[in-house]
């Protein structure tokens, strides 16, 4: 089932010097596979991990994750 929100992690990784999923995972404290699953919308992260991802990119949470109004 598709999640009711999307994310811009892939773009933000690219803009952050082509950061790899593994690098982001190391900085957030999760595996590369978990970052891949979040990116692809297959896994809904906890609020803590969502904030940690936003913190790595130095962005507010809503710049990383966007609620999709059509899936309310």
């Amino acid at each position: 089932m598709a999640l009711p929100f999307t994310n811009d992690i892939r773009t933000l990784r690219f803009l952050a010097g082509e950061m790899t999923q593994g690098d982001l995972g190391d900085r957030v404290g999760v595996t590369r596979q978990t970052i891949a699953a979040i990116e692809q919308g297959k896994y809904s992260p906890s609020l803590e991990v969502a904030f940690r991802i936003a913190h790595v990119f130095e962005k507010p949470l809503e710049a990383v994750f966007q609620w999709n109004d059509h899936k309310d």
Binding site: G29, V30, T31, Q33, T34, A37, Y43, P45, S46, V49
Partner: peptide, 8 residues
């Protein structure tokens, strides 16, 4: 040796 993360 890595601890399981929240998804695991």
């Amino acid at each position: 040796h890595a601890a399981a993360d929240e998804r695991e």
